[in-house]
Design a protein around this nucleic acid. Structure first.
Lengths: 206, 206
DNA sequence: ATATAAATCAAACAAACGTTTAATTTAAAC
DNA sequence: GTTTAAATTAAACGTTTGTTTGATTTATAT
């Protein structure tokens, strides 16, 4: 599925509005108006509103695959690798936070007939890389064996997203003013907190 | 605002449907049908769909206040208190997961004109209790001073909610079959993971 | 038993929704 | 320059949306 300029222009507006007001909370007329195209173009290009969302997900999905194999295979200490992995994941997820938000909300519904197979497959793939890394570290005695490996990623992503979904609250709590300092906060303070958390968890002895 | 039986009956159906399909994805006719009342009753009792949501939030909000002061004041080690606090928070949030989900989704929008002041105020109150507890533990040398205190709660709640929102995925990963074993998983495995994480974080030395 | 209020209902309301149509303009190919 | 295809448009389509109306039933009070 190749997308032309106009289609991408529409999808990028749709992404913002879907993330802001939800899929059901956004009308095709809103999208068309903000993207400066006629309403009919959405049906013309994508077939339907739902298929447009699927196009958006496929368009962004390429960015989702976290290629941390290279980070893992580097010559470094296990704890430094944890730092790098966490930083990498947070960066990726923050960059694609809008699409992730849409997926999170729509995936947790049972109604919608949107195809999430690729998303789930990618989640599985990413999990397996993490699993292998942790198990290797456990074998080498670097990591504790008490860790619930499948719940490590939820802690990383969960911390990020709970912060992001409640950013209005935490912005006030941390005296963050604008978008720039939000980015800074995510890439420094929040990343550091998650790094600390995961390193602590992986080395914690009951 | 006192609610009669019928109103509560409506709100409880609304809560389920809002959590399942979102506020915008649920029509008042769906709610009325499932609650076995006439559509007009919603406007009659609550004034509007939005005001019905506000009624629901106020109705449930009473359950939100986490009274962990009693837990904290108990005679026990700091790490055991952490266990109890985490268990308490996860239990509360799991019990009210549907309303929390609705709030999470609607609060992160900028459009809706729903009053979240009470929710934010409660979040603040809960945070301050945690802050005081951690600072006390830091003073006594039980906890590390490197911790970002405002980000502790996001890690607890974030881990829970990321798991819950992606439960379809993690259910498959953990071979969880029905609702009972989901509850069991939350109250045992997931709770234990979060307890470990927070204890590790609070005692981690850089 | 009568009067007053609350609750319930089917029906109608206008507005907004996603989508389609049919005509027109723009671009590409020959 | 003519032909053919792609892109764009305004208007209309049938549904569904949240809400209101006005009549009717049920409950409460006197």
């Amino acid at each position: 599925m190749e997308l032309n300029e106009k289609q991408i222009q529409i999808l990028e507006v749709a992404e913002i509005l879907f993330a802001e007001n939800g899929f059901d909370g956004t009308s095709v007329r809103q999208i068309a108006k903000k993207a400066d195209v006629n309403v009919a173009m959405i049906s013309y290009y994508f077939g339907s509103k739902e298929k447009m969302l699927e196009s958006l997900l496929n368009y962004r999905m390429a960015d989702f695959k976290i290629q941390i194999e290279t980070l893992i295979s580097k010559e470094d200490s296990y704890l430094n690798k944890v730092d790098e992995i966490v930083e990498f994941i947070v960066k990726r997820v923050h960059k694609n936070r809008r699409t992730h938000k849409i997926i999170n909300f729509e995936y947790s519904k049972n109604s919608l007939n949107i195809n999430f197979e690729e998303y789930v497959a990618q989640k599985h793939g990413n999990y397996e890389v993490i699993e292998q890394f942790v198990k290797e570290g456990q074998g080498n005695g670097a990591f504790s064996k008490e860790v619930n490996i499948p719940l490590i990623v939820p802690t990383i992503l969960g911390t990020y997203f709970h912060f992001y979904y409640n950013k209005k609250f935490y912005i006030a709590l941390h005296n963050i003013s604008d978008d720039v300092s939000l980015d800074e906060f995510v890439h420094h303070t929040l990343t550091k907190h998650i790094q600390q958390t995961i390193k602590a968890l992986l080395t914690y002895a009951n």
